[in-house]
Design a binder for these strands. Structure first.
Lengths: 166, 166
DNA sequence: GGTCGTAGCGCAACGCGTTGCAATAGCCAC
DNA sequence: GTGGCTATTGCAACGCGTTGCGCTACGACC
């Protein structure tokens, strides 16, 4: 036995995994992940459960490294390759989006409500989302330029934020 | 002795290094690199000479890996770390610009005539430059959005080019 | 031409991300 | 509950890029 976690059917944790799709009126998109996986012939494993638990607490931008570190806290046997592969799977379900930060590292956006690009400040290191209207403007400009159809989720633009310009 | 190249003052190659700053009316920006380095207290070494020779034949976009491979052809003792460090130096002189391609790898633009962003097609893998006017539009849009001052050289936007959209 | 301070070199090790492969374990059917 | 198919895991190795360190050799000065 490699995992010290309880059985895969363990339901002692506060968050239900697949039953109870809408808890009151607040349906978390994470509810039902297990079923969505199984419906596609994929599997619900302890490793995936751990990652989903971590993602629940990180709605926003996270680096892959952060996710791996946090998974390791919950399950010391976590392996990087498994996390990356699981993130790929979750991306196919639309639950996360990855992009490349300005320094080239992977950055994940959890539960994207709308497709958007990112701004990275080289001064303070913070990341902002490009507003949808501004994003649309960029998409249109590039379409007009070379007929290019861009994928905003992969856009990370480096620069300096207002606070870091002096 | 680690290098099998001739002395640093070897002038048997067709391209002059520092004398003869303007060859006829076509002054290569690479002429005078040696002097520019020395003027800043930096040095003109066989390794740097090799890289500059490689860059002369690559005016456009190149990946760091390509540059290293080509340097290795000219000098089998070439070390990656040296190439990366030399590229940094040349970037400070404005002779190259680096950016992160959509897949996160380093991409160098040799002799940039103007600052520009890049478009990367996920279909065919080609890279296009964003036209200056379009770039300016993007810069303005982001400035208006969050007061962000962007550095276009670091922008690489992924998408599909016109030819790859069907 | 010889001396010497230091910029730069090669090496080795690291971090991030990916991939191939053999072993494991979900989960479906009976 | 059992069996079996195969998705998934963990490992090990790789590729790209970076960094720290001790030694080399560039090039300025005499």
């Amino acid at each position: 036995m490699r995992h010290n976690r309880a059985s895969n059917e363990d339901r002692t944790l506060p968050q239900p995994d697949s039953p109870n799709p809408a808890r009151g009126s607040v349906a978390s998109p994470w509810d039902g992940v297990a079923d969505r996986l199984r419906a596609s012939g994929l599997r619900w494993t302890p490793q995936r459960r751990t990652l989903v638990e971590v993602l629940r607490e990180h709605e926003g931008h996270v680096t892959a490294t952060d996710l791996i570190a946090r998974c390791r806290e919950l399950d010391r046997t976590t392996t990087p390759s498994t996390v990356y592969r699981t993130l790929d799977v979750l991306e196919n379900l639309g639950l996360v989006r990855h992009g490349h930060a300005a320094d080239g590292r992977e950055e994940y956006h959890v539960l994207p409500e709308h497709v958007h690009g990112h701004l990275h400040c080289v001064g303070c290191g913070a990341t902002w989302e490009i507003r949808p209207e501004t994003g649309a403007l960029i998409v249109d400009a590039l379409a007009a330029d070379l007929g290019f159809s861009v994928d905003l989720t992969h856009v990370t633009i480096a620069g300096r934020c207002q606070g870091c310009q002096e």
